[in-house]
């Protein structure tokens, strides 16, 4: 069974979005099924954005925030981390595996890590199979 998951990656424009740019510029290649959504800070990301992504048919959602202590808005990344934790619990109760929502800390320079994370993340979502939202009874 060949399944290409649809994945949304929310990226803080101060770190992961730049790392993704560099990863692209190095032409190393990463799964093209990952759509990047740019945010001014991971602290802007709301629960509803993640839920909507699943509603729109995402099989996985990745959230990239700056490392602890290096958010340029002080604690936006910590805020995001807590919100993701809350959302993961909510998803589990809704009936969507919480492993479909992943949270990572990443700096602007860690483009190789970005590649590793999205490649591995893609594989793990692949192994989970299509989102239960999409599976017709």
């Amino acid at each position: 069974m060949d399944f290409t998951p649809a994945i949304v990656a929310f990226c803080c424009e101060n770190s992961a979005y730049r790392a993704a740019d560099t990863a692209g510029a190095r032409q190393e290649g990463y799964p093209s099924n990952i759509s990047i959504c740019r945010l001014p800070c991971s602290g802007k990301l709301e629960v509803i954005h993640i839920l909507k992504a699943f509603e729109e048919g995402a099989d996985g959602v990745f959230v990239f925030a700056c490392h602890p202590d290096s958010c340029r808005f002080l604690l936006g990344n910590v805020r995001a981390g807590k919100r993701i934790e809350h959302t993961a619990a909510l998803l589990e109760k809704i009936g969507i595996e919480k492993e479909r929502l992943r949270f990572f800390y990443l700096s602007e320079l860690e483009w190789t890590q970005f590649l590793d994370l999205v490649r591995q993340g893609n594989e793990s979502i692949k192994s989970l199979g299509p989102s239960p939202i999409k599976v017709k009874p």
Binding site: E46, V47, I48, L51, K52, F54, E55, L90, K93, I94, G95, I96, P132, I133, V135, K136, P137
Partner: peptide
């Protein structure tokens, strides 16, 4: 309003996850 949107979306997802 924010929580209303989250609950409504959660319920839609929950129903769909159960095939409804």
């Amino acid at each position: 309003a924010k929580e209303v949107a989250i609950l409504a979306c959660s319920l839609r997802l929950a129903a769909r996850a159960r095939g409804k």
